[in-house]
Write a protein that binds this DNA or RNA. Structure first.
Length: 828
RNA sequence: GGGGAAGUGGCGAAAUGGUAUACGCAGUCGCCUCAAAAGCGACCGAGUGAGAGCUCAUGUGGGUUCGAGUCCCACCUUCCCCA
């Protein structure tokens, strides 16, 4: 009909957002007396355009923030930009745009888009990590870490990405490939800056045990990444050569089964051996040369395990047995000690190697019953009972490990030790678009950190981007400087910091974002920290989330902030958003842009779809068909509520309305079911608002049905539900909710209102459906008053022909009664 | 190879060990309309039956239980992490 008023979502959404902005309703105050709640989404990289995949993440965080605000918390919900990084530099090389220009343009656009989806961020706290206001504190932290011996420079074999032309941290190498560009990573020896995260391994591990608000998956990944293993380090003498070869093993109980020692070609003992073994020199050097160009990936995974004998023998310190020393491709110099003892009988890799090269396989562990005997067809890697092991025969693996370790220690040959897989965090990057490392090298004073009053070391503008070499290293005006200590000529470190340094502490800067004298105020930060709910994808499990924990522990240790040393109390891993079966991304060309979606369907409908289509931790397929259901929902809300908006206010929300009949009770119940769902999904931190939105559907279906009654407009129950509608919709469809609230004549925003507490009286039902089972199968459903007694229920059940038919001729053995739910009659 | 998560209608999915398939999409039918769209209403797992019903169905096969989508074991498939 022409009279039908359709809801103009474009106009309403625009005007609501303008009002929120004008009134600053999402600004968090430090002195607010209500309990604090810090909800944070991982800060985005400003790649240029926001797509609906980003929107999925922010819509969930926003619903969590809004519902907490309505439930009486002082919510801080900030947003900013992880603005340093390679794409900006690549744009500069390819298109001649300054990285800063490219980045700031992108930020402007994405800021507009994040606002466009109706998020409730406190923009007064916005930050961009590429601005000197921010990165000067990266430098400040670097110097503090340096002073404490936690930042150091050393030459080491490092991961070099030949495409991005920079080194990478271990965490940024995935299966031997660069995490960003996918190129096979090479090994290079370079002098680089490291942060000593290894000093914190035990605390990082211990903290994980307490983080029960984190997914187990992520905790396990971090534990595995840290890779703690306890074992023994001991050394072999080399026969007739002045050298020792140190090895680490977690299975010292198998040491009588060692039939060879495998070393990396670069191991220092190899050179000494070759001096004595000239005959072997040629084949060893040839072998070493063949590996020179191979990446770590190839050596440890792609290539067959192979090697050549050096001709020298190691002496097993316990058995005095002589075993050959082999140079192999699968032992790497920079892992562990660069050498391993080869126990083919009890290690799969050694078994494979021994088979190939005809080395003996000596079984020294058998199953507890002693049944497992040579010849072995595969390595037996489990613990068991020792055989062929001198005085340790008959011991169990665990006991033998202790006994042998003690013996080696007593001999002065070894000691129990703990090894970790994690290595120190390499933070130098040979790139331009990052935080300059605040270090000066002086011929007289050596390595000198830039003093605080000379920070920031500004990133120079107008440098040349050729794609060849580091732009800062080529910039003489930047590199050449004077020594802060003696004033003589000196040079700056030409590298920039890993951008993960930026994101290691940004969540504290948000709390005091404009402080010009320090990174943040201790009192303010301590009041807001830790982050109560952190939201982001699982891809950062061993990168950002590990670095940030380390950084925060350091900050707590230094007294920059007080309280627990874990920064993120709860972590929620959002599922990915797929489109046509693939991850949505620019490079795949399958992006649904946010502007497009908002223009076509509206913000509220888009948000509701992202919440409704799947639980938030699941991957979600974006479909253009599914969202029409949410567009319809928004229109249905409007058609039901708008005509009654003014009248609805006459029925107060602080108590249940007059309910004239069952229909009214059902309608009011539907409202309270939805209120209850929103509350419990939030309090349990499950955030399954897909269920809450289904309850909203049921509510609107009920309301639409109720409005068909002739006197519906005057019905207090109808008015009450319409009056409450903006509140229950507010976290999920914030625009239409606020618009309706205004139509009701309220001056303030619905987003500053209190969530209505679900009322048990409203949730209660007049009549329950009791399921009657016979031998576990549903045979009847009977309507009864809540609280019906078992005997009464049984009597009713025995009047149902479908029940008695099943019992006929049998004896009732047992009755199981679940009050108000079910009666199971067991008959045989 | 090791570890983890998941598998439910045509599709997205719901379900404290207690009515499997809520809610939405798609579809079918009806009302409204000159017609269509929109809207409103009804139906919508499979088989069987005139019908009340009955049988089967949550990847496959076992098990625990009065009762299993849910817990346990094995297997298959997919995804993720580590090597």
């Amino acid at each position: 009909m022409s009279e039908e008023r359709t809801y103009d979502f474009r106009a309403v959404e625009r005007s609501r957002q303008a009002r929120w902005e004008r009134d600053g309703i999402y600004v968090a105050r430090d002195d607010d007396p209500r309990p604090k709640y810090y909800v944070l989404e991982m800060l985005p990289y400003p790649s240029g355009d926001l797509h609906v995949g980003h929107a999925k993440n922010y819509t969930l965080g926003d619903a969590v923030a809004r519902i907490h605000r309505m439930r009486g918390f002082n919510v801080v919900h900030p947003m900013g930009w992880d603005a340093f990084g390679l794409p900006a530099e690549n744009a500069a090389i390819q298109r001649g745009i300054e990285p800063e220009t490219w980045t700031l343009d992108n930020i402007r656009n994405m800021q507009r888009q994040v606002r466009l989806i109706g998020t409730s961020y406190d923009w007064t706290r916005e930050l961009a990590t590429c601005l000197p206001d921010y990165y000067r504190w990266n430098q400040w932290f670097f110097v503090r870490l340096f002073e404490k011996g936690l930042a150091y420079k050393r030459e080491a074999p490092v991961n070099w990405c030949p495409v991005d032309k920079t080194v990478l941290a271990n965490e940024q190498v995935e299966s031997g490939r660069c995490w960003r560009c996918g190129a096979a990573v090479e090994r290079r020896n370079l002098a680089q800056w490291f942060f000593k995260i290894t000093d914190y391994v035990e605390r990082l591990l211990a903290g994980l045990d307490r983080l029960d608000g984190w997914p187990d998956r992520i905790r396990t990944m971090q534990r595995n990444w840290i890779g703690k293993s306890e074992g023994v380090t001991f050394s072999f003498d080399v026969e007739n050569v002045e050298a020792q070869i140190e090895v680490f093993t977690t299975r010292v109980d198998t040491m009588f089964g060692a039939t060879f020692v495998a070393v990396a070609p670069e191991h220092p003992a190899v050179a000494k051996i070759l001096e004595k073994m000239p005959k072997a020199r040629h084949r060893v050097e040839e072998f070493a040369a063949s590996l020179k160009s191979k990446s770590e990936l190839e050596r440890t995974q792609l290539m067959e395990k192979t090697g050549v004998p050096t001709g020298a023998y190691a002496v097993n310190p316990l058995s005095r047995e002589k075993i050959p020393i082999w140079v192999t491709n699968y032992v790497l110099a920079e892992y562990g000690t660069g050498a391993v003892m080869g126990v083919p009988a009890h290690d799969e890799r050694d078994f494979e190697f021994a088979r190939k090269h005809g080395l003996p396989i000596a079984q020294v562990i058998t199953t507890p019953d002693g049944s497992l005997r040579a010849p072995l067809t595969e390595a037996f890697v489990e613990d068991g009972k020792l055989i062929a092991s001198g005085e340790y025969i008959g011991m169990k693996s665990a006991g033998a490990r202790r006994a042998i370790a003690a013996r080696l220690e007593a001999m002065g040959r070894g000691k129990t030790s703990v090894h970790y897989r994690i290595r120190d965090w390499l933070v130098s990057r040979q790139r331009y678009w990052g935080t300059p490392i605040p270090i000066v090298y002086c011929p007289a004073d050596g390595t000198v950190p830039v003093p605080e009053d000379q920070l920031p070391v500004l990133l120079p503008k107008g440098v040349q981007f050729t794609g060849q070499g580091s732009p800062l290293a080529n910039d003489a005006a930047f590199v050449n400087t004077t020594c802060p200590t003696c004033g003589g000529p000196a040079t700056r470190d030409p590298d920039t910091m890993d951008t993960f340094v930026d994101s290691s502490w940004y969540y504290v800067r948000y709390l005091d974002p404009h402080d010009a004298a320090k990174p943040f105020d201790k009192e303010i930060a301590s009041r807001w920290m830790p982050v109560d709910q952190y939201i982001g994808g699982a891809e950062h499990a061993v990168l950002h989330l590990l670095y940030a924990r380390f950084f925060y522990m350091f900050m707590v240790d230094q007294g920059y902030v007080t309280g627990d040393d874990e920064p993120f109390t709860r972590l929620f891993n959002q599922g990915m958003l797929l489109y046509r079966g693939e991850k949505m991304s620019k490079s795949r060309g399958n992006v649904v842009g946010i502007d497009e979606a908002v223009e076509k369907y509206g913000v509220d409908a888009t948000r509701l779809f992202l919440l409704k289509a799947a639980p938030p931790e699941d991957t979600l397929d974006w479909t253009d068909e599914g969202i029409v259901g949410r567009v319809r929902f928004v229109q249905r809300v409007w058609r039901a509520a708008e005509p009654l908006a003014v009248a609805a206010r006459s029925v107060p929300l602080d108590r249940l309305p007059e309910m004239r009949g069952d229909a009214q009770r059902e309608l009011v119940r539907a409202l309270h079911v939805a209120l209850d769902s929103g509350k419990s999904e939030t309090e349990t931190h499950r955030f399954h608002y897909n269920v809450t939105t289904a309850k909203l559907d049921e509510l609107i279906n009920q309301l639409t049905a109720a409005l068909r009654a002739p006197d519906a407009a005057d019905d207090p129950a109808v008015r009450y539900v319409v009056h409450a509608l903006p509140i229950v919709l507010a976290p999920f469809a914030p625009h239409i909710a606020d618009e309706l609230w205004s139509l009701m004549g309220y001056e303030g925003s619905v987003h500053l209102e209190r969530w209505i507490e679900p009322d048990p009286a409203a949730l209660a039902v007049e009549e329950i459906t009791l399921v009657v089972q016979v031998n576990g199968k549903v045979r009847a459903r009977i309507q009864a008053a809540p609280g019906i007694a078992e005997d009464d229920a049984f009597a009713l059940a025995m009047r149902e022909p479908t029940v008695t038919a099943q019992i006929d001729g049998k004896q009732v053995r047992k009755r199981i009664f679940v009050p108000d739910k079910l009666l199971n009659i067991v008959a045989a």
